[in-house]
């Protein structure tokens, strides 16, 4: 565990906490894409299938449980909680997210490190995570009304991706045989998707204006 990996995990954790805070305390999910949250729930469910069979550390298992529990509870809140679900921007959040799953599955079947059940699903989760933010970014553009918590949530998620790239670079130079091309490329694609958001986030921050994305 290096400092970049830890910083990445902590910003990821913080992003989830910010979102839960918004949903749990303010009882609002305005501006949050249910499509993206459903994709994240599938990402974690397929990636952490090995939670019972592969033990790395108590830290890893605990974090897996937190990400699984939080992603499914966020989906539950947005779909079924009587107050929260009324704040969901249903009409704006129209990205056809299920269509992202088939190409990701096909790609995982074609390009993987090892052709086993767990490994293909792990790879599928990497590809799906790379594009899972798309419905959220589309919703942001459409609503044009981005509150601070939603902006911070996406900012922290992007930060998590950035720190993971630094972690991979660090590990590549410090650990022999540490080469994971698929993880790196999927992670890089994912981070590039945030790059656009970051650009407008900093622009609005610099001009001291409310975050607004171009149509």
């Amino acid at each position: 565990m290096n400092i970049f990996r830890l910083a990445g995990d902590m910003t990821h954790l913080a992003s989830v906490l910010v979102l839960l805070l918004k949903i749990h305390t303010i009882k609002s999910c305005a501006g949050v894409s249910l499509k993206t949250q459903e994709l994240y729930a599938i990402v974690f469910a397929t990636r952490y299938l090995d939670i019972l069979t592969s033990f790395v550390s108590i830290y890893n298992t605990l974090m897996k449980l937190i990400f699984l529990g939080s992603s499914f509870s966020i989906v539950w809140y947005m779909k079924y909680h009587k107050t929260v679900r009324r704040t969901y921007d249903r009409d704006q959040d129209t990205f056809r997210h299920w269509f992202l799953m088939l190409p990701c599955l096909l790609l995982a079947l074609l390009i993987h490190e090892k052709f086993t059940f767990f490994e293909v699903l792990w790879t599928f989760s990497l590809y799906l995570e790379a594009v899972a933010i798309l419905p959220q970014l589309v919703l942001l553009q459409r609503t044009r009304n981005i509150d601070n918590l939603t902006g911070q949530y996406i900012f922290l998620l992007g930060g998590y991706r950035g720190f993971y790239i630094l972690n991979w670079i660090y590990r590549y130079f410090t650990e022999p045989h540490y080469v994971h091309w698929i993880t790196w490329i999927a992670g890089l694609v994912q981070t590039l998707l945030y790059a656009d958001f970051f650009y407008y986030y900093f622009l609005s921050w610099k001009n001291n204006k409310k975050l607004q994305l171009p149509a």
Partner: peptide, 10 residues
């Protein structure tokens, strides 16, 4: 063997 790759990241 059918052993899985070691995934130590989240």
């Amino acid at each position: 063997s059918e052993s899985e790759l070691e995934h130590d990241e989240l």
